[in-house]
Simulated scan of single mutants.
Amino acid sequence: MRYFALILIFLSLHQTMRTQGTVEAEFDTIFNFQFASLKNTHQKKILIDEGHNTIYSLPYGRQTAREMLRIMEEDGFQLQFSNRKLDSITLKEYSPDILIIHGMPNDKTVLTDGDKKEILYKSPLNENEIMGIGKYVFEGGSLFLFLSHFPGGSGALPLLEAFKVKFRDGYAFHPNSLGHKGGLCSHFTMSSENKMINLDHPLFAENNWENLSPGTIKFLCGAAVFRNPEDTILPFPNNTVNFSPTTDGTADIEEYSDAYAGMIGFEFGKGRVVICTDQGIFRSLDLLIDDEKIPVTIHDPECDNAALLVNSIRWLGKLKP
């Protein structure tokens, strides 16, 4: 294992307060998901964005997603990384079957005038990129978009609006699924039995890959997203709460909903889109918090997140058994 320290917004939401701190983590280098590969049966290509402020723009970004990247390559997908703008020119040149954007916080600019300070937030995606990605999907491409709880998805809002997706830019909470140490950013254990895995979604129902139906999914601290009921892949329980951050560091209840989800998938024109609001759902990290090791999450022995990944990329790649 390799150890490193992350400075991040660690959600220790006791009552309504958020705190920041240093969280130690280690890369998992051992887990190796075994499955019947489709290698040499297709020539599908995946383009991964590392030009914007995604996880892959960080020096250790690829290491944190080691198993996710390995599984996609093992399944026969050709991976390419790009640090270019995601406009129509770039997408036409690479011509990927799947575009992956993994994390999308806003860009932050600090303006100062004497003693006065103002912070401006702006999406990293410009208008040409929003139009280019929308056109790419409408004409047959697929988008795999990972967001996170605040502030890890804020920069994707213009893109989400283009796909008619509603995103609650806060923290998803349900009293039956408390976060770490009782925090208000829930850790969900999902299954079809508790109606938090929708096996009727085409991502599962249309393909039925052998031994790849996930029994349990771990979803650790994410945000709420919704579109149409039939789009839901990982629904949250009824009466899930969105806690919205405020400027003074507290978290307010914005609304309750029975329609929230942590992962959705839908067709858009000739293309397909999957959006997941847990940025770590397929990453290979162990967070070390208060002498407790928390797997995040693909290598967690108590979950089938790797099987969910294979189902997702095959559905986005329009592969058939």
Rank of each mutant, 00 (worst) to 15 (best):
M1N: 14
F4Y: 10
A5D: 12
L8K: 15
L11D: 05
L11E: 07
L13R: 08
Q15G: 14
T16E: 13
Q20N: 15
G21H: 07
T22P: 06
E24W: 10
E26H: 14
F27C: 07
F31H: 15
N32G: 11
F35P: 13
A36E: 11
K39S: 11
N40M: 09
I46G: 03
G51C: 13
I55K: 05
Y60D: 08
T64W: 00
A65K: 05
R66I: 11
L69A: 03
M72D: 02
E74Q: 14
D75Q: 09
Q78V: 14
L79V: 12
F81I: 07
L86G: 01
L91M: 08
K92M: 05
S95C: 06
S95I: 08
P96Q: 05
D97L: 00
I98Q: 03
I101W: 06
H102M: 00
P105W: 00
N106E: 13
N106L: 01
D107R: 07
K108E: 13
V110I: 15
L111G: 09
G114C: 07
D115P: 01
E118L: 15
L120S: 15
P124Q: 03
L125M: 04
N126C: 04
N126I: 07
E129F: 02
I130E: 00
G134Y: 04
Y136W: 07
Y136M: 05
S142C: 04
L143P: 03
H149A: 13
H149S: 12
H149W: 08
S154D: 10
G155H: 04
L157D: 10
L159S: 08
L159I: 11
K166Y: 14
K166A: 11
G170K: 00
G170I: 04
F173E: 06
F173M: 04
S177E: 08
L178P: 06
H180V: 13
G182N: 07
S186K: 04
S186M: 07
S192C: 09
E193F: 14
K195A: 11
N198D: 09
L199E: 06
P202Q: 01
F204W: 04
E206A: 13
N207M: 08
L212P: 12
T216L: 06
T216Y: 02
T216A: 05
L220Y: 10
C221P: 00
V225P: 00
R227H: 10
N228E: 13
P229V: 15
T232P: 00
T232G: 01
P235Q: 05
P237D: 05
P245V: 13
D248Q: 15
D248I: 15
Y256G: 02
Y256L: 10
D258A: 06
I264H: 00
G265W: 02
F268C: 09
F268H: 14
G271M: 02
C276S: 11
R283Y: 07
L287G: 02
I289S: 02
D290K: 06
E292N: 09
E292G: 04
K293P: 00
V296T: 06
T297R: 01
H299F: 00
D300L: 01
N305H: 00
A306P: 05
A307P: 03
N311D: 01
I313L: 03
W315I: 09
L316W: 04
K320A: 11
P321E: 05
